[in-house]
């Protein structure tokens, strides 16, 4: 079993264990002794200064003069989603912005690729598409309303049961 951590869009299977000396990071078949002492990160003995902030499942790391965002996903959520579970029912905002058109309403049948909502962000228009065939359950924003990244824009009716 592994934890899932996304860097940008790439998902990594990661585990942290302990041995007699300290923590061990598992990445695939590789293992590294690791330690974090305040702002000193040690991986296999080599130290790097880091600044780290954790906000829920998001970990922000400043290292080598650059900041990175990592997102933790629990194995349960990951494997549920991987098996085609509820994640596909939720259509989220790819970036913050405001709504400029809502071509569908609750109850409409849509096919994968149909436009569910049109948003504007930094003068860019983006059509948010249906991830699968289905029926619209809710449209959560009206024209003119603004939202932040990852806001739940549209929900498709669950296909379970």
């Amino acid at each position: 079993m592994q934890h899932m951590i996304a860097i940008e869009d790439a998902l990594h299977r990661v585990w942290l264990s302990r041995d007699a000396q300290g923590y061990v990071l598992h990445l695939g078949a590789q293992q590294w002794p690791v330690a974090l002492d305040g702002t000193a990160l040690r991986v296999a003995g080599a130290a790097s200064p880091v600044t780290i902030a954790v906000d829920g499942d998001r970990v922000y790391v400043h290292i080598d003069g650059a900041a990175h965002e990592l997102v933790y996903q629990s194995p349960i959520a990951f494997h549920a989603a991987e098996a085609g579970g509820p994640a596909e029912d939720m259509v989220r905002a790819p970036m913050p912005g405001s709504v400029i058109a809502t071509p569908v309403t609750a109850g409409d049948s849509v096919a994968a690729g149909d436009t569910l909502i049109v948003i504007e962000s930094m003068k860019l228009e983006t059509a948010v598409k249906a991830p699968r065939d289905g029926v619209v359950e809710t449209v959560n924003f009206a024209v003119g309303q603004s939202f932040e990244r990852d806001a739940l824009l549209v929900t498709l009716a669950s296909q379970e049961g």
């Binding site: 079993m1 349960i76 494997h79 991987e82 098996a83 579970g85």
Partner: peptide
């Protein structure tokens, strides 16, 4: 939903 999911729940 899958064996992998089952093991995650079991754990």
């Amino acid at each position: 939903a899958s064996e992998a999911h089952a093991f995650a729940i079991a754990r």
